[in-house]
Amino acid sequence: MLGDSPIAWKTKKQDTVSFSSAESEYRAMAFTTRELKWNHELLSCFDISHKQVMRFYCDNKAALYIAANPVFHERTKHIERDFHYIRDEIVKDSIATSHVRTTEQPADIFTKALAFQQFSYLRRKLGIRDLHAPT
């Protein structure tokens, strides 16, 4: 999101098998961190300054814990080192992670089959309007 506008999203099957949903979410967080850094650089090419810390919302508490906790332990030993890139960005205050409840996660509209009420709620949250609705 840039302001209130969605500017990028991606859904992709991972090419590796994760040992847990936390690992899968953590891998997605690392990929998204790289995308955020790229978008930040792209904005600067257009002379658009963004001084604030980039906010990163995730609905998986375990993945957020792994990103924030630099201690390696039994549950994270199988995650490749290059995915720990996100920790460096948190320490540099380049990004800040926050938990978002699953019911408030806007990305779910792109990745999950949702009930109409939840779909409509997330659509409104993203600012997406029905162009064919009567005015």
Rank of each mutant, 00 (worst) to 15 (best):
I86W: 05
R129P: 10
H78G: 08
Q105E: 08
F31N: 11
E41H: 13
T97H: 13
L131T: 15
E104L: 10
K112V: 11
L36G: 08
T111L: 06
A22G: 10
L122G: 02
A28L: 04
E80Y: 14
A133L: 13
E89S: 08
K112H: 07
H78W: 04
I86M: 08
V71S: 05
Y121F: 09
I7R: 01
F19M: 14
R27V: 15
T102H: 12
I109K: 00
W9K: 05
T103S: 12
T111I: 03
A68S: 11
E89L: 04
M29R: 02
W38E: 00
H84G: 11
L42A: 07
Y65E: 08
V100G: 06
A22H: 00
E23Y: 02
K37Q: 13
P6C: 14
I7F: 02
A62I: 12
I109C: 03
N69H: 06
V53Q: 04
H73I: 07
T111Q: 01
H99F: 15
L2C: 12
K125Q: 08
I48F: 08
K112E: 05
P70W: 09
D59T: 06
D88C: 05
S94M: 00
Q117M: 14
A133T: 11
E89R: 10
I66D: 02
I7N: 09
K92A: 03
S120D: 15
T97Y: 05
A67W: 00
L43W: 02
T16I: 14
L42Y: 04
E25C: 03
T102D: 11
D108M: 01
Y85V: 02
T111P: 02
V53L: 00
D130C: 00
Q117R: 15
F19N: 13
K12S: 15
F31W: 14
L2V: 05
K51E: 01
R87L: 07
I48G: 01
A30E: 04
R75C: 01
I109W: 00
D88P: 09
Y65D: 10
S44G: 08
S20W: 02
T32I: 12
S44T: 08
L131H: 06
M1R: 09
P106S: 14
A113K: 07
M29D: 05
K51V: 00
F46N: 11
C45M: 12
N39H: 07
P134K: 05
G3F: 03
Y65S: 12
R124L: 01
E74V: 14
S18H: 12
D4L: 08
D15I: 08
S98T: 10
T16N: 15
N60H: 05
Y121L: 12
Q105H: 09
N60W: 01
K125M: 06
F56R: 01
D130Q: 11
L36R: 11
T76H: 04
M54F: 05
E104F: 02
Y26C: 00
V53W: 00
